[in-house]
Design a protein around this nucleic acid. Structure first.
Lengths: 230, 230
DNA sequence: TTGAAGATGTAAGCTGGCCTACATCTTTTG
DNA sequence: CAAAAGATGTAGGCCAGCTTACATCTTCAA
């Protein structure tokens, strides 16, 4: 139980809650383990829960008609996902899949609602989170329309560094979740081959280091400026 | 006052409210007129109000660094906009501009909050609306990544027909707000010239009719299938 | 340890759609 | 009503990035 509580504390929305409140919410939740590759929810499944990721990485994606995938989000530990169930979603419009062994805490949406109908400030926090996500998506829409693949990758990496970054001994920032070029391709809406090329470009410029499924950012500022200033 | 009330009634979110509730909310609102081209709010302005469009058309857009625009939404009469202020947005991340003479009803976000902290079911409605908007944007993101300009235009037109369509005497559906090719270009993330070309393509296929800033859909089903089935 | 599966690297060819550059309409404004 | 402003039409040149097609490298399960 202490363990549950710890993770809930890290997540944004919950930072506004008191100790007791959190314990009560934690008592409403169920803990589940998912193996790498396992599905948390599928398209069109009823939207019954909200999830809190404790350990691991979750990929949120959509499937287009001919089976092309678009990755909407990579969820880091301490973040919630599946929150669309709170926004009136009856059945899932996305799917969630564990890309590594993960530990997930799930809360029935009804419980969640009951809980924070008593906590107005909490409801506001959730609203704010939702708003932030929306701005994020709108930003991506804009980028997709106006930026080159090279720039989109640079933007993705800086964002990933901020959200999923781990500082490494020699000063760089390592992106924690392991991403294939294919993943990146879907995240930025490009082809796998082009991503490989552009990553090597960044590597040649000394901005990043890559090893197998692992990207380390050497020079975060330069990477960020690459697009900002243009 | 009756007039105010009438428009509020048409809007989705408000359909759940009782007669008295609506009258009370209407009494909190202020009515403003905006001439064509006028700005309702600008980027970075404080997000103080929610707006309800009574007459006219509002364009919601974002502006990138070098002035590239992306149109996020075209708001029709009876719909609300600027609702991001309810989602914890402190200052506007978008701008809103009247594309024709418009009549707008504005409500302070504080008043709005006070009002529906007393009405839980209303809060849920707002949440649902927000969720729907989000799915819509995610869908556009996907389309932008995987569909050709031709397809994106076809998709836009079918959506516009459903949301802004007016049935015309001879059976077609006219898209009410007047759109320039430039507008469409920004809506689908393409260049103005390409839009002109592709529209003429659709015209040649007998799917739409165009006259100056006015598009009528001749064959809505065929237009929709154009992309769905592929 | 050895496949097999998946990830990454590389390269040639093709093309959708951008950009540039005008010409012609339509509308608005003075 | 004339001129300016904005909308639309057309066309050639060009290139980012997709496709296709392999080769190689890494990991993992048998």
């Amino acid at each position: 139980m202490e363990n549950k509580y710890w993770y809930i504390k890290r997540s944004d929305i919950f930072s506004v809650m008191s100790h007791e409140e959190m314990e009560r919410l934690a008592s409403l939740s169920t803990m589940c383990e998912f193996k790498k590759g396992a599905t948390i929810y599928l398209l069109d499944e009823p939207s019954e829960h909200v999830y809190l990721l404790k350990e691991g990485t979750i990929k949120i994606s959509r499937l287009g008609q001919d089976g092309q995938e678009i990755i909407l989000d990579i969820v880091a530990p301490g973040e919630i996902f599946g929150e669309m169930s709170l926004l009136g979603e009856d059945s899932r419009s996305t799917m969630a899949q564990a890309t590594e062994d993960s530990l997930i805490c799930s809360i029935r949406k009804g419980d969640f609602f009951n809980f924070f109908s008593a906590h107005n400030d909490l409801a506001f926090k959730v609203l704010k989170l939702v708003g932030l996500k929306r701005v994020e998506i709108e930003t991506r829409l804009e980028e997709l329309a106006y930026c080159s693949v090279f720039e989109r990758i640079a933007l993705l990496l800086t964002r990933m560094a901020k959200r999923h970054g781990v500082v490494v001994v020699d000063g760089g920032i390592k992106i924690r979740p392991r991403l294939t070029h294919r993943d990146i391709a879907f995240l930025v809406g490009a082809s796998r081959e082009t991503v490989t090329e552009q990553l090597n470009q960044l590597k040649a410029q000394g901005l990043i280091d890559t090893s197998f499924m692992c990207i380390t950012i050497r020079n975060p500022d330069a990477l960020e400026q690459l697009v900002t200033e243009r």
